[in-house]
Design a protein around this nucleic acid. Sequence first.
DNA 1: TTAATACATGTATATATGTTCATATATAAT
DNA 2: ATTATATATGAACATATATACATGTATTAA
Lengths: 100, 100
Amino acid sequence: MDVQIPVEEEIIDLAEFLKTFGDPTRLRILFLLRNGELGVQAIGDALGLHQTTVSHQLKLLRHLRLLRYRKEGRGVFYALNDSHIEQILEIGMQHIQEQI
Amino acid sequence: MDVQIPVEEEIIDLAEFLKTFGDPTRLRILFLLRNGELGVQAIGDALGLHQTTVSHQLKLLRHLRLLRYRKEGRGVFYALNDSHIEQILEIGMQHIQEQI
DNA sequence: TTAATACATGTATATATGTTCATATATAAT
DNA sequence: ATTATATATGAACATATATACATGTATTAA
């Protein structure tokens, strides 16, 4: 009994979701946010990135639901959206550390 | 006590590894191989891909250790390398299926 | 209202990536 | 040795992507 390959649309969505983990800047943002929510400026300062670079990446990360956000005053605070995100980071780290 | 962000080299390696999951063709190959090892031709036939397309992607997948391979006669058989691969596919599917 | 702060968006550009065509290599069959 | 089969590799091209600059929007302060 064969395991099914997801249908085209699911494959596309899954690729789009997982692709998001494939960039060093976005990974740094995700790892940083494991310590809790942060504003855009704070993320840029912590990682040495331009504000626009951060905003563009945050837009992607929230559209693909890796992050959620909360507006307060004139600030916007971003946080990891669910446990899937940390799970993938964790498994990925395990994989790259298993060099022979 | 803050969780550490991995060092630059680890971030780069992790991004390179996870980026590999971010393409529909490669995802199809990975899902297909959940049923067991297959040769290059068989993969192309099953997914309707050119032999060269498959070979190029397999090269990537094996270099980043998502797949291992085994030569037998004039064939080369590819298989999922370890459980991390299926775990990431599984978590990713959970994520995209959790639409509100 | 005006200025300041925080964030988002549009556009341009350099670089990366996926696929295809042409061709190479390796093993097996005749 | 020649031919056939299975896979790999190199190069070219079209498309996608990350970043930076310029600018827009929203909220708060003066």
